[in-house]
Amino acid sequence: MSSLKVFTNGLLKENPTFVLVLGACPTLAVTTAAFNGIGMGAATTFVLFFSNMLVALLKNYIPDKVRIVAFIVIIATFVTIVDLVMKAFVPDIYKTLGIFIPLIVVNCIILGRAEAFAQKNDVSRAILDGLGMGIGFTLAITILASVRELLGNGTIFNIPIVSENAKTMLIFILPPGAFITYGYLIAIFNQLKAKYNF
């Protein structure tokens, strides 16, 4: 696989949100507004990037039997770093994302990539994979969040799209809307994938 393919793999072919359906908890929970999608995506990408890098660097020094524990320690460290940095510098986003920042630890995408990719590849490819997966995740949840924000609140990135007097469909920023929108987006993604064969 060429380097470019490693990178684009996470964007389309194995998009963590639409194809692998990993990390569904934050995907559903924080996508009430497009900005939250970007914030969550950035935090996850940061953790993916560094955990993939470190796992690839240390792969020869971690005995097989304890690798999962070692990965969890590495991932949890970067998650805590993100947690502290966001608390210090972007308190508003930190407050909205709430408990889903520490929960990046158990986001299956990250442990999954460490196990399935980073520990078998060299550092540069692992980094590319981390970036690709992270950006793929960010794009996907931002799309989901934009759809929900538009239907539920009439705005995208807080920019009003529909007239202020229009009735918006509140249900889309409530929990049921998350499930339903996500379901339809996967269906649409699958159709596009089948049609254009990417």
Partner: peptide, 18 residues
């Protein structure tokens, strides 16, 4: 040259990483 999963290696590697 991957480290073997001996007890010593496991403890050492986990300890250093932590």
């Amino acid at each position: 040259n991957k480290l073997e999963s001996t007890l010593k290696n496991m403890i050492l590697s986990l300890f250093l990483i932590s």
